[in-house]
């Protein structure tokens, strides 16, 4: 690996100061599972790697507060998916988080890292987008909140400024009954990168939010309010019709993992599966409420 320097700030001000100093010549490390691969491949040159694991202000936990679930920037995926608050309310995030890399990766990789790497195929991004997660960013200039849906600019690129750090991922608590699910297509059953991935969230009020990964430079989010996807009595043909309109915004390409045509076809296959499971869950949630 090309050489770089290492810094380990112990507080947020110290971290922000380092960021001010090094700007885009610095990279933050928490889990490091993406960063180190990039550094090993030599397609990223940095001057300093800043370890944020001792910055007390950056939490490694999941906290449920009034109306929100807050995921700390240092919370590792393996723990997030086992958190009772997440397990009970956000099955799509759990399903996605459980298949990110291997056990070893999930023990180390953070949800925040999965987001900030901005890989178009990142598995936790579609569910978090579908749940309408917000990202809180801080810098010496203050703090701002960005919807995850408008967080990505392109592959590997986000709206984070060189002097900013991700401080929190905030996921709104479900308003009413909600059903959600995640699915993906891969080349093998074991650990793999997604050929395409999809998360779907169905709300009691008839709104359906789908988010697709690996089908465009950034995640694609599509929303639909006819209510048909949330209605168990609607015909399969009609569901297909609606799903196809949702999928129309996806722009898959061909690469080593798959052809464009296969991606397009699998989008619909996976979207159907996601809708089916999400609807079962919505129905269950509606039943539970009565």
């Amino acid at each position: 690996m090309q050489s770089f320097k290492y810094a380990r700030p112990e507080s947020l001000p110290e971290l922000l100061e380092l960021l001010e100093k090094f700007r885009d010549r610095a990279r933050l490390i928490s889990g490091g599972t993406d960063l180190l691969v990039k550094l090993q491949h030599g397609n990223l040159a940095v001057e300093v790697v800043i370890d944020i694991k001792r910055v007390a202000e950056l939490s490694d936990r999941v906290v449920t507060t009034n109306g929100w679930v807050s995921i700390g920037p240092r919370a590792v995926i393996g723990r997030v998916v086992r958190h009772p608050g997440i397990e009970s309310a956000y099955p799509a995030l759990v399903e996605a988080g459980r298949i990110v890399g291997s056990v070893q990766i999930r023990n180390r990789a953070t949800v925040a890292g999965n987001i900030c790497t901005a890989s178009p195929a990142a598995d936790t991004v579609p569910p978090l987008c579908a749940y309408d997660a917000r990202i809180r960013l801080v810098s010496t200039e203050g703090s701002r909140e960005v919807p995850l849906r408008s967080f990505f600019v392109g592959p590997g690129k986000t709206v984070i400024a060189p002097n900013e750090v991700l401080a929190e991922i905030r996921v709104p608590a479900p308003h009413g009954a909600m059903g959600s699910s995640f699915d993906r297509i891969t080349r093998r059953r074991g650990v793999d990168l997604a050929t395409i991935n999809i998360a779907g969230v169905l709300h009691d009020n008839g709104t359906a939010v789908f988010a697709f990964g690996a089908v465009a430079p950034t995640v694609v989010v599509a929303e639909e309010t006819s209510g048909d996807l949330c209605d168990p009595t609607v015909s399969a043909d009609r569901v297909d019709e609606v799903l196809k309109t949702l999928l129309a915004t996806a722009r898959p390409i061909s690469d080593v993992r798959s052809s464009k045509e296969y991606r397009e076809a699998m989008l619909l296959v996976a979207a159907r599966r996601v809708q089916r499971t999400a609807l079962e869950r919505l129905t269950q949630a509606r039943g539970g409420r009565e």
Binding site: Y6, T33, Q40, V49, G101, S102, Q104, N107, R108
Partner: peptide
């Protein structure tokens, strides 16, 4: 050397990790 094979697995504070994806400095 890129976290895909597990050959380098060790336990760090009781957690299995790929030692090729961890900086020694950490």
């Amino acid at each position: 050397g890129e976290g895909e094979c597990g050959a380098c697995t060790v336990l760090v504070n009781g957690e299995a990790v790929n030692s090729c994806l961890v900086l020694a400095a950490e």
